[in-house]
Each structure stands twice: as structure tokens, then as C-alpha cells.
Design a protein around this nucleic acid. Structure first.
Lengths: 153, 153
DNA sequence: CCTCTGTTTGACTTTCTTTGACTTTAACTA
DNA sequence: TAGTTAAAGTCAAAGAAAGTCAAACAGAGG
């Protein structure tokens, strides 16, 4: 049961616990050498345990002084948004997306202008990617924006 | 995190903050020796952080008593956004997108939260199109969102 | 024993930073 | 005015991160 990935996952989550602002910065190589694993192991942990669907935002910078920033939205805290996330899943059509954004507005979670910005982002005209993946891309964008809203309440 | 470029960037921005007329003069070699880096490092910071794209104008004079003058552009809002549209065109990479959004924020056109929402929408993690159209999709999304902002001033 | 799923690794790629050797321009001085 | 010196500019190479991807590996269930 104790594979390295799980241990690293717990470690990062503890860092997040301790962090005042629910976000933490790590250095990939540093962490990897601390746990005596390969650097790409860190990427594996991030993609499998700290995905957007689980309420995490991961950003990074390469080059000298580069780092990885992990931020958390406590989805558990808000059952409502959690439900919406599940509803979105990894694919959503335009109509449903608009409905969800409207709900967020009605609940007073986002302003009118923010609603319009989000609608613009998920419109079919914006997401001009080929056929099948449109709804996947839309789902990612929408969830990502929702996380941003929640991190900036 | 702690690369010299970022530190110098912050330093210069603080100088600009303090300056009464939104412009400041530095001496390249002096600054370089203050930060114990090579002089050309200063040029690197200027080109990557104080480019015109980011709303800065940099002028300099060589030779004895030479110096570098950094000023912040103050362009009228409407013309500005128009220019950004042209700059985006039908394809834009992530870095440039972030810069443009930052500018919109600095100009007071969008709020901090709107900035985060827009950043989320154009992040590489959101736009996971497997094809080579990422930058096209990003351009469309960004322009759409900017239009939405404009319609809802 | 085989397959399926999740983990681990390493080679290779991409991005961003830092440095240094060389160039250009301006001012000063004899 | 020519020569010297004191700036800043350029560019490419080296360095320092993080990212990707496919292959090897491990363990559980059938």
C-alpha cells in the first residue's frame, strides 16, 4: 500500500494543510531527490492525485528558479460546486455549460459580467476545435474557471 | 521563485511606483553590480519583463554618462484594446495571453477576479486539444472574452 | 499463468535564465 | 580632431529547471 506516489501525495497535502493560503510551491527536482525517486514521478503524482477534477490548480515554470505551484480549492467545503463538477465531468455541451454558469450567477457566486466572460469562453465559436473533443475542452475550461472563482472569493 | 530576473523586475517596478512621473532612470552597470549579476542580465530583464507588449517604453543612451530610461505607457483605453485585438490575431501562445490579461487588469479594464477567470480559461491545462491548434483556440477564447468585457462595461 | 491496472524510471524535449565575448555609441581629453 | 574611456547592446552558448512519453515493472484477480 505504501508506494512512493501515495507518500508524496500525503506529503504535499500536509504542506497544503500548513499553508495559510491553501497553496504551496515546490521544486520538482528537490522533492524528487528528497524522496529518492525520479523527477517525473512528481509529474505522475500531480496528474493522478492533484488533477483539476479533484479541485487542484497546478501551475509551473521552467528554467532557472523554476517551480511548481499547487493550489487547492476545498471542494468538500462546498457541496454545491462539487455537484456541478461531477455534472460537468470531462465533457459538456454548450447548452449545459450555459445553464451551469447561469446557476452560478443566480446563486450570487459570480457577477453578471463574470457570467458573460465565462459564457464567451465556452461558446462554440471560441472553442473551434475539431468535432469530437470540443466538449472535452469546454469541460476543462469551465471547471478551470470555476476553480479560479473559488480561489478568489 | 528566486531567480535574479524576478528580483530585479520587482526592484524596478518599485522604483516606478515611487517615481512621480511614471518613469525612472537606471544605470545598467550600477544595477548589475548592485545585484551581482552580469550587465547583460539587465537587458534580459528589460526585454522579457518591460517590453512594449507589457506596456513599457525603454530608451537608452550609450557612452559616458549613459543610462536607461524606463517609462510606463499611458494609452487611452479604447485604442489600447483595439491594438491588443490586432496583436492576438488568430493565434497566441500562453505567455502572451497572460501578458495581455495582465495589462487589461492594470488598466483597470478587468477586476482581479476576472483576470483569474480569464487566465484559467486560456491556460494550457484547460485547452487540452491534442492537435496543433491550441494557440488558435486560445486566441478565439481570449478575443471572445474581451468582447464580452466590452459589451458589459 | 495471464491480463489488466496502476506505478516507476529514464531518455529526450522544451522553456527560461545566466553569462561572457564582442560590438556600438557617446563623451571627454590631449 | 583623434584617441581613449565609459557606457549600453547583441547574440549565442551553457545551465537550470520542468514536461513528455513510452517502456519496464508490480500486484491483484480471474
Amino acid at each position: 500500500m505504501s508506494n512512493i506516489s501515495d507518500i508524496i501525495e500525503v506529503f504535499i497535502k500536509e504542506l497544503l494543510e500548513d499553508a495559510s493560503n491553501q497553496s504551496v510551491e515546490i521544486q520538482r527536482n528537490e522533492l524528487a531527490s528528497y524522496f529518492k525517486c525520479s523527477p517525473s514521478q512528481i509529474n505522475y503524482v500531480l496528474t493522478t492525485r492533484f488533477s483539476m477534477d479533484r479541485g487542484f490548480i497546478v501551475e509551473s515554470r521552467r528554467g532557472g528558479g523554476g517551480c511548481i505551484k499547487i493550489a487547492q480549492m476545498d471542494i468538500e467545503k462546498d457541496r454545491y460546486v462539487e455537484g456541478l463538477f461531477i455534472e460537468i465531468g470531462n465533457s459538456i455541451n454548450h447548452l449545459k455549460g450555459v445553464q451551469i454558469i447561469e446557476l452560478l450567477h443566480q446563486k450570487g457566486i459570480i457577477s453578471g459580467r463574470e457570467k458573460e466572460i465565462m459564457n464567451a469562453a465556452i461558446s462554440d465559436r471560441s472553442i473551434q476545435s475539431p468535432f469530437d473533443i470540443k466538449n472535452e475542452v469546454r469541460a476543462n475550461i469551465l471547471k478551470s474557471m470555476m476553480l479560479a472563482v473559488y480561489r478568489n472569493e
